[in-house]
Computed example of a mutant assay.
Amino acid sequence: MEKRQKAPIGRPRGFDADAALEQAMRVFWEQGYEGASLTDLTNAMGITRTSMYAAFGNKEELFRKALERYTEGPASYGARALREPTARQVATAFLNGSVRATTRPSCPTGCLGVQGSLAAGDPGRGARDALVTWRNEHTALLRDRFQRAVDEGDLPPGTDPGLLARHLMTVANGIAVQAAGGITRDELQQVADMTLQSWPPATNPAQLP
């Protein structure tokens, strides 16, 4: 007798999970965690709730995946800035990137990492905690980079790298909030430029790249 073929295990999703996650990211970016209903999310993603749960988990898990996508996409300027050769260039690339990312014509204004769950109540506690961790991790990366700059003589010996990183992150977060409020890119760029005017001078600029 001819052997019967086994049916494939599981069913194909029938949708582009990457494109669906992109749309979910935009909904969270524009509406925040609590403001984004499951109906908003599934409509934008073009899938059913059952498919969403199967592919991405619950709403909080979907939010965390959307935040990862945001970090690797619109917010990737932060990782690129850390690779700049001097602390001033790091700060310049970081703030300029923040201005551009929060005012893109084809994207929601502001920053998902700042506004995503600022007003979240108890149901959104997990998302809020995820964003607090996200912001703290990025501040720590800047702190470590500025500590290296102090060690290399790129920043004055008395510079507090943690305070400098927190200052830069606070300005970037403020830029995001202002962008969400309708402030233009040109105005926000002026804010970034003003911040950079007071940047600590390099101790041994001749030795730097």
Rank of each mutant, 00 (worst) to 15 (best):
G174Y: 05
W134Y: 15
R88D: 03
P108I: 07
R4Y: 08
G153S: 06
M52Y: 06
A192L: 08
T170K: 01
R26P: 01
D18R: 14
A127V: 03
L118F: 13
L196S: 06
L196Q: 04
A87F: 01
A101T: 01
R4D: 08
Q89L: 14
R11E: 09
C111T: 00
A91S: 00
A17E: 13
D160Y: 13
Y53P: 03
V114Q: 11
A24L: 10
N136Y: 02
E84Q: 14
M45D: 02
E68T: 05
A55C: 08
L95K: 03
G73K: 13
V150M: 09
A91D: 01
N96P: 00
D40R: 03
L21T: 06
A7D: 14
L38M: 14
P108T: 07
P209V: 06
R100H: 12
T203C: 05
L131K: 00
G162Q: 01
Y53I: 09
R148D: 12
P200F: 12
K6P: 04
P108Y: 09
P209S: 02
W134D: 00
K6H: 13
L188A: 03
T71W: 08
V99R: 10
L38V: 13
P161L: 08
A127C: 10
T50R: 14
T71A: 15
A79G: 02
A87D: 04
G14A: 07
L38R: 14
T170F: 03
G116F: 12
G158E: 13
L41T: 06
A55V: 05
F63T: 08
P205Y: 07
M52A: 12
R80V: 07
A55I: 02
V27L: 05
S117H: 10
P200S: 10
E30H: 11
I183V: 15
A91I: 01
F63A: 04
R128K: 15
T133G: 03
V150N: 04
A130M: 07
A75I: 03
E2C: 02
L164A: 02
R125G: 00
P200G: 01
S37V: 00
V114C: 09
S198Q: 12
E34C: 06
A20Q: 10
P8G: 10
E187R: 09
G57V: 04
A165D: 00
W29V: 02
T102A: 10
M194I: 11
K59L: 10
T203L: 15
A36S: 15
T71L: 09
A79C: 02
A120L: 04
R80Q: 13
G78C: 10
S106R: 07
R135C: 01
L38C: 05
L62W: 12
G181A: 14
P8W: 09
G121A: 15
G57C: 03
P85S: 05
G162L: 03
